[in-house]
Amino acid sequence: MSTISAPGARGGSARPAASVPRGISRTYLVLELRRLVRNRRTLVFSLVMPPVFFLIFGTSPAYAHQSAGRGNVTAYVLVSMALYGAILTATAGGASVSVERAQGWTRQLRLTPLRPSAYIATKLAATMALSAVSIAVTLAVGSLRDPQMPLSAWVGCALVAWVGSVVFAAFGLFMGYLLPAENVMQILGPGLALLSFAGGLFIPLGDGLFADIARFTPTYGLAELTRAPLTGDGFTLAAVANVLVWTAVFAGGAAWRFRKDTARV
């Protein structure tokens, strides 16, 4: 409406009235993606390990003939590995905030107009992009080894795994704020492997005490939901409740630490 600009009494330096980004900065997002692609470690964890694990664990010839609901067991293992890759990617992405915090980068950003929430959103967006690529690569590699499932299961499993992995981005963020930055992934990596066992991602859970405990771990609910399009079992109430509760815990925890971190003292 108003075209009148207040130039203000500035000491000589004329400044362009450029619009300062208040939300996500495209430049920043592109740079974040470039950083992920350049990071060899990230690429190994996100794009190499999951398909390799599938090739190791999921290609037994017997699996091709065993049924897993609407597909075969090969497909079951493949979907599990895709989810494992997505979870690992998302957790590492969230946890990277802690490293950047320890390096003083988030403090440096506070000397710019970028909002702390926009910083987190940028990190999450880049992480979720890589998570999508991780799932796609794993499924693409796996598709060469004869997994059987209907197209709806391919798409459904991939989508649930991808959307669900955001829960682990929140987990990574929360843990990143809590754990010492230098070795956060050294702690989270083995922790995730354990959780993946609990989610039945590597071997079926079966019955027994471990299986009973496993039902309450954050990987279990998400794994059940991810495999539902393949098994045809539908979303069980227990799995949905598991995911909702853990989402609340991780997102709430991350938000709590985030607010504490950005508060001025």
């Binding site: 362009p16 980004p21 900065s25 430049t27 470039r34 980068w105 440096q108 710019t112």
Partner: peptide, 21 residues
């Protein structure tokens, strides 16, 4: 502190500049 070690000098400055529009 306040620097990302895995990006280049030019990228660091370009990013900071972009945050100021």
């Amino acid at each position: 502190g306040g620097l990302l070690k895995d990006i280049t000098v030019a990228e660091t400055v370009a990013l900071t500049a972009s945050l100021f529009g």
